[in-house]
């Protein structure tokens, strides 16, 4: 099958690759760009393990064709920390609040939570639960994930306040 030329901005880096138009975005990320943080859990966009941020929205990259992503700006878990290596507040708080166990859902969950807090910096518990309902976790029962996201919201708010 003939290949298409794909241009993406991934984690602040311009990348180009050749791929079959039918290739799924998750496979381009994982197999061509070596970004194995996002995972494949269901192939049907129910589990959210493959969640990445595309043009400022959460998408499930197992149901996005690479062709659809041409020219897109993407953020994956690998781009979540600052360039100096400082972890994002969500990455810190997932650890502090024991918001992960096997770690398989974690990259998608944190990436989703990142967008949720962009959209709603001060969510209630119910809003967090609804906001991550497209991401399944089989280990934690969500309780500590919810706690971690709420705590990260507080951290981000205090950082913002200090900056202002």
């Amino acid at each position: 099958m003939s290949k298409m030329h794909l241009k993406l901005k991934v984690n602040n880096r311009d990348v180009e690759t050749l791929t079959e138009p039918r290739t799924l975005l998750i496979h381009v990320l994982r197999e061509q760009l070596g970004l194995t943080g996002p995972h494949i859990g269901c192939d049907t966009s129910h589990c959210g393990a493959c969640t990445v941020d595309m043009n400022g929205r959460s998408v499930k990259s197992c149901t996005v064709l690479a062709a659809q992503a041409d020219g897109a700006t993407l953020l994956t878990i690998e781009g979540m920390a600052s360039p100096d290596g400082t972890l994002h507040a969500l990455q810190e708080s997932f650890r502090t609040h024991h918001g992960l166990q096997c770690g398989f859902c974690t990259p998608g969950m944190i990436t989703r939570a990142y967008r949720l807090l962009q959209e709603n910096p001060n969510p209630t518990e119910a809003e967090i639960r609804f906001g991550i309902s497209g991401n399944l976790c089989r280990c934690t029962g969500y309780q500590n994930i919810v706690k971690a996201i709420r705590a990260a919201a507080d951290t981000l708010a205090s950082v913002k306040e200090a900056a202002e």
């Binding site: 994982r30 197999e31 970004l35 194995t36 943080g37 996002p38 995972h39 494949i40 994956t76 878990i77 690998e78 979540m80 920390a81 972890l87 990455q91 997932f94 650890r95 502090t96 024991h98 992960l100 770690g103 398989f104 974690t106 990259p107 944190i110």
Partner: peptide, 21 residues
């Protein structure tokens, strides 16, 4: 005790079988 596993998992640096190439 906080988990020592979490540093790699929260940064997308876990090494699951499908990550092996």
């Amino acid at each position: 005790r906080k988990r020592v596993e979490d540093a790699r998992f929260t940064q997308g640096k876990g090494n699951y079988v499908d990550d092996i190439k």
